[in-house]
Amino acid sequence: MVLTKYIVFSDFDGTITLQDSNDYLTDNVGIGSEQRRKLNCDVLQNRSSFRDAFKEMLDSVKLSFTECIELLRKNIKLDPGFKAFFDWCLQHDITVIILSSGMEPIIRALLKDLIGPSAEKIQIVSNSVDIHKNGSWNIVFHDDSHFGHDKSLAIKPYSSLPKGQRPTLFYCGDGVSDLSAAAETDLLFAKAGQDLITYCRQENIPYREFIDFTEIHSTIRSIVEGKSTVKEVAVNK
């Protein structure tokens, strides 16, 4: 467990990237966007677990895993503010940890392309993948939870530390895979117009809305420099 004064946990797909790579595969070479949105709504309304809905989405993708990565490399773009934010975090000894319901080989491949060698300094906690000899593949979930990857489990070792040892914790996310992490950190950044904000409003969870990482960067820098506090910026919109 890495301990620094500030730790930024972040979702990957649709948060660090502009597009969700799993949604992109599902929409373009799987069951399609309409059925995907229906499954996401089922999760938000507690009619389905995220694990089951997500598996149904990915099982509908019939490309080989190599073909999936090549397709994503051509189409997934980095959030315009993330690289500058990450470079700033490295300079100020701020830990960045990706918590993803995606698959680590895809995340590593995209990060290497999008931000270069420094991507190796980002810790990733995510699902894995089982690739078969014929090129077919299936997701291997991180844990036995109904999320498939309960992101709160990676945060709790830090949030449960005694006062004086506990870092200030941030989380950045956008969708239904972030629900378990939404209330676990000191300040939640929720992407504008996405399902995580809907959930936060339903559950009255304080959050800071963002459009891209330039806003996250500005807010966290203000807190680190003592110009504002978590309580001052964490509000329901």
Rank of each mutant, 00 (worst) to 15 (best):
R37F: 06
A183V: 00
T4C: 13
P157A: 05
Q194L: 13
F213K: 12
G32P: 07
K38W: 04
V43H: 03
K74W: 01
V96I: 11
P80L: 06
T66E: 15
L90R: 15
D195K: 08
T4H: 14
K83A: 10
V230T: 10
I139G: 08
I211R: 13
S159I: 03
N75D: 15
V96K: 05
P105T: 08
F12Q: 01
D59S: 11
C89K: 02
S33K: 15
I69T: 12
G30V: 05
G14L: 05
K74C: 12
D195C: 09
F85A: 09
I107P: 08
N28K: 08
T198L: 04
I155T: 01
S48Q: 14
P80H: 04
N138K: 14
S128R: 12
K156L: 14
R108Q: 14
F141D: 01
E70C: 03
T95F: 01
K237T: 11
D143G: 12
G14D: 07
R47P: 02
V96C: 08
T66W: 02
P167L: 08
K191V: 06
E120V: 14
I97H: 00
Y199L: 10
D130W: 02
E120G: 01
N22G: 15
F189H: 02
Q202M: 08
S60Y: 11
K231Y: 07
N22M: 11
K156D: 10
E120S: 12
T198C: 06
K151W: 06
F170A: 05
F54W: 04
F50Q: 03
L196C: 09
S136F: 07
D42M: 14
D130T: 11
N127G: 01
S60H: 04
F213Q: 07
D174M: 11
N236W: 02
C68V: 04
K55C: 03
S48K: 15
E215I: 10
A182N: 02
S118C: 06
T219G: 05
A154E: 09
K74A: 15
I211S: 15
V129H: 09
S60N: 11
K237E: 13
S101G: 12
S160T: 13
P157F: 00
I69G: 04
P80S: 10
F86S: 06
A190Y: 03
Y199W: 12
S177E: 04
S152C: 15
A190V: 00
K121N: 12
K163I: 14
R201Y: 09
F147H: 11
E120I: 04
P206C: 13
G226C: 08
D52Y: 10
E203D: 04
L78N: 09
S136D: 13
A192V: 12
S60F: 00
Y158L: 15
Q35I: 15
I97Q: 03
